[in-house]
Amino acid sequence: MTDTTVFVRSQMEPAALPPKRSTGLVAWLRTNLFATPGDTAMTIIAMLFVAWLVPPLWQFLVTDAVWSDPEGLRGEACRFEGVGACWVFIQGRFNFFIYGFYPVDQIWRVNVMFLLGIIFILPLLVPRAPFKRTAAVMFFLVYPVVAYFLMAGGVFGLRPVPTNFWGGLTLTLIISLIGIIASTPIGILLALGRQSKLPIIKAFCVGFIELWRAVPLITVLFMASVMFPLFMPQGVSVDNLARAIVGIILFESAYMAEVVRGGLQAMPRGQYEAAYALGLNKPKTMGLIILPQALKHVIPGIVNTFIALFKDTSLVSIIGIFELLNTVRAAGSDINWSSPTHAVTGYIFAGFVFWVFCFAMSRYSIYMERRLHTGHKR
């Protein structure tokens, strides 16, 4: 009888490598850039556009740029023919772009404020960080008071610094942070009020939202700066920065309300019925069941509103507040720094700063969407 055991493997053969055409750089290019004739054409057009755009930008921003000013020429260092970006202008006025007119010997107070803000907000941004409730209390209740007295002074021996000395990126972050924190709960309340069955509450919320959405932010800022003091009692005045912040909060809360309302309307009726079947009343149903799901669904819209608010802070320059963009514009008018490219360089710097913060918010939004999706991701 023939022995068949010689034809049976005693060990598994090692797994064969995948075909070279299905892995590596060539496979990625074929799948993502050259999958179809249309994709190939678009890829070629994009490559030609990049080849046309990148070399002159690189030449202006890097190769022909002025990076140092060892002789202290300031604007004269960038007045030669064929000179690119005047980065020495950014270096020379960097403190002004960040801190505005804040006294140089008191800048440490601004730095301490930033450091405390980072320490308090990090536990809120990291999902697995401990002591979230403590961090929330410190950031939303304690930190605003500490930050205000650090900036304004007048206590504990700190020299008073009026708000008209605040400026630059510091003021941009202050306005946007206060606007984001304050407009979010107001917007949620307005969205809930707009769905209320009580006619008075619903009419008030609808009127508030439609009023503030119907006027440009520039008009709101002009009204807050010029018209509002006319309605105040004799001898009573409100700080110009405070008026601008209040106007921005009310303006952005109307847009936030519509974003949240979209999430509330997207919730199926079954969620309400299930909550009522469990014996939950309306406040608990809304706070524990509906709102968490609705806010999760509209994270992109909420972050989009935050980004728009952050960029809209540049509009406060029209009422004489020196945020980042206005400090760049003011520094550009200095005759000592006058050159053919210093203004363009300043705007490039301001645009890059805005892009960094907006891109960071966008990426964090994507991270939170991926973390919170529970079966609804497509």
Rank of each mutant, 00 (worst) to 15 (best):
T170N: 15
I201K: 09
I180K: 05
P162T: 05
V259A: 11
V226G: 01
F228R: 03
V238H: 05
F204H: 09
E210T: 09
I181K: 09
R243M: 12
E258D: 10
F222R: 03
G157V: 09
V236G: 02
V155P: 04
A152H: 11
I180G: 03
A214F: 08
G247C: 04
N240T: 12
P216Y: 00
A257D: 00
F208L: 04
L221W: 00
I245M: 14
L192S: 09
G179V: 11
A152R: 14
P199L: 13
L217C: 00
P185V: 10
I201N: 02
W166V: 06
P162D: 12
N164K: 10
L177M: 13
G167P: 05
T184L: 13
V260H: 03
I209Q: 07
L250I: 03
A242T: 06
G187M: 07
L173H: 06
L230N: 11
Q195Y: 04
V238S: 03
P160R: 12
L192I: 14
A214Y: 07
N164R: 14
E252P: 00
I174W: 03
D239P: 02
V238A: 10
S196M: 04
R261Q: 13
G247K: 03
Y255I: 07
V155Q: 12
W166L: 10
M256G: 01
A214C: 06
P229W: 07
P216N: 00
S253G: 02
F222A: 06
V246C: 00
N164I: 01
V220G: 02
V259C: 08
I218L: 11
T184G: 01
G167S: 09
I248P: 03
T163V: 06
S176Q: 05
L250A: 07
A257T: 08
L158M: 15
F231S: 12
G263K: 13
G168R: 01
P185A: 12
N164A: 01
M223S: 07
L211W: 05
M232L: 15
G154M: 06
R243W: 09
L211H: 04
I200K: 14
L171K: 12
I249N: 00
S253H: 02
I218S: 06
R213P: 02
I186W: 07
E210P: 00
N164V: 06
G167T: 09
L192T: 03
V259D: 01
N164T: 09
R213S: 03
I178P: 00
G247L: 02
L190E: 07
M256I: 11
G153L: 08
L177Y: 01
T170Y: 15
L189I: 10
M223C: 14
S253R: 06
L230H: 11
A254N: 04
P199K: 14
P185S: 10
V161W: 13
G207W: 04
F228A: 15
I209V: 15
P233L: 04
S196E: 08
V215T: 15
I181L: 15
F251Q: 01
I175W: 00
A244V: 02
A182T: 14
G187K: 07
L158W: 11
I188T: 14
L217M: 07
P160V: 12
W212A: 04
V238I: 15
T163N: 10
L189Y: 08
L250H: 04
A257Q: 04
G179R: 13
I188W: 11
M227V: 15
F165C: 05
M232T: 13
G263R: 12
G154P: 04
F165T: 00
